[in-house]
């Protein structure tokens, strides 16, 4: 289960700035290749999709595989088109989506 999404944005930005958007979420990212102590395979359970929207626009998307570390960290760049709010969503193998929003402080 995905918990505690964390977003790091610059404190203040200006329209036209290129900013780094850092995201982190707590998730085991179980690969499906591991066995538990009883020798039973542990079923795969990963976040397979990450989407970042700014306002109505999708600005970044990632498909993740089991090769991404536990507690996936993803950062990307964006040119600030103006004031707005991010909506980040992570979807797991069961189709459950965790959503986090963060407003950008445009001065």
């Amino acid at each position: 289960m995905a918990t505690k999404p964390r977003i790091k944005l610059p404190d203040t930005v200006k329209t036209g700035d290129v900013i780094e958007v850092k995201t982190l979420i707590t998730h085991v990212m179980e690969t499906g290749n591991r066995k538990d102590s009883a020798g039973k395979p542990v079923p795969r359970d990963i976040l397979n999709t990450f989407v970042a929207k700014y306002g109505q626009d999708e600005v970044f998307r990632a498909e993740l595989g089991p090769g991404i570390s536990a507690n996936p960290y993803i950062s990307f760049q964006m040119r600030v088109p103006g004031p707005g709010t991010f909506e980040f969503s992570w979807t797991d193998d069961h189709g459950v989506t965790t959503v986090e929003t963060a407003a950008l402080n445009v001065v």
């Binding site: 498909e63 950062s75 964006m78």
Partner: peptide, 23 residues
């Protein structure tokens, strides 16, 4: 599994730079 991740970018990004952590 060979495919670790696919990152989709667009002109919104302005700079094509992505960071993550892999196994």
């Amino acid at each position: 599994v060979a495919k670790v991740a696919t990152f989709h970018l667009s002109p919104f990004n302005a700079v094509a730079r992505v960071q993550s952590r892999m196994r």
